[in-house]
């Protein structure tokens, strides 16, 4: 069909801006993914010297490329811990904030304030306190706490959005039908909120998985993956680094696809399985 109306000039300005954004977002990443399949004799830059999985293999040879499997499993475990804590406490806090309890807004602002605090200083402070109380910093203690200062406020804000669409008459109906508070939570509130909880879980997981500044000075002897990658950029001079980038991206995408996929399936079931 013929274009009847000429597009305004602002369209072209905004379209150019968006194209640049996409280029900056995906261009470099794409280059890294491609280079990770570099041949065994290839280097850190184009051109490709053959295609192979050589550098993915090299990842698991600890001496040459740093402690990949150690830091990877640490990061995944930590991300799961952060995810579980974030979901548990954000849900409880979110439900609590629906009532105007004494000090509600003070607690809310205190929680959200940690989003604007510089992560590196937070990390420094936590590391310092651990030294003062003479406890060793470790990824499962000090780093877990540091990451929660970041993921909990996020989780809480998402819960607010989720709960704002939650009709309280579901709870009243459950109570009307004889459910106890625990049964109301278990059979009605949590199942209805479940897609929202997956979103909180996804945020908890990914915020932890690629967290850097808060972890830097709290992680203790064993690095998490982002810290390990940062260390590698100065010591590893082979495409194994790119292979690492590809692997971690696959993990992130898997987490996202899993979450969004399960949300979609739940929504589809609630919308009616029998519909075409």
């Amino acid at each position: 069909m013929a274009q009847h109306r000429k597009r305004p000039w602002t369209f072209y300005v905004l379209a150019t801006f968006f194209a640049l954004f996409v280029l900056f977002l995906y261009g470099p990443m794409l280059a890294i993914y491609i280079l990770s399949f570099q041949g065994p004799t290839g280097g850190l830059t184009f051109p490709m010297n053959g295609v192979s999985l050589h550098w993915f293999q090299a990842l698991f040879e600890q001496q040459r490329t740093g402690d990949f499997s150690g830091s990877f499993s640490r990061s995944i475990l930590l991300a799961f811990l952060v995810m579980i804590c974030t979901v548990t406490f954000s849900v409880m806090a979110g439900l609590a904030f629906r009532r105007r309890f004494f000090g509600a807004s003070a607690i809310f602002y205190m929680a959200v304030a940690s989003l604007v605090m510089p992560g590196l200083f937070l990390s420094l402070g936590i590391g310092l306190i651990f030294r003062v109380i003479d406890m060793p910093t470790n990824w499962f203690s000090s780093a877990l706490g540091a990451q929660l200062t970041w993921s909990l406020p996020f989780g809480l804000l998402i819960m607010f959005a989720v709960l704002s669409r939650f009709d309280r008459s579901y709870e009243e109906a459950a109570r009307d039908l004889g459910a106890t508070n625990r049964q109301t939570l278990q059979y009605v509130v949590l199942p209805i909120l479940f897609p929202g909880l997956i979103a909180v879980a996804l945020f908890g997981f990914t915020l932890s998985y690629d967290e850097f500044p808060r972890t830097l000075l709290t992680v203790g002897p064993g690095n998490t993956l982002p810290l390990e990658i940062y260390a590698m950029t100065t010591t590893v001079t082979s495409p194994a680094l790119y292979a690492l980038g590809t692997v971690t991206t696959v993990v992130s995408f898997a987490a996202i696809i899993l979450s969004l996929g399960s949300i979609a399936i739940i929504q589809w079931r609630r919308g009616g399985r029998f519909r075409k």
Partner: peptide
């Protein structure tokens, strides 16, 4: 019986 019926969607 609630105005919105409040049937549990899940």
């Amino acid at each position: 019986m609630f105005q919105s019926y409040a049937l549990f969607p899940h």
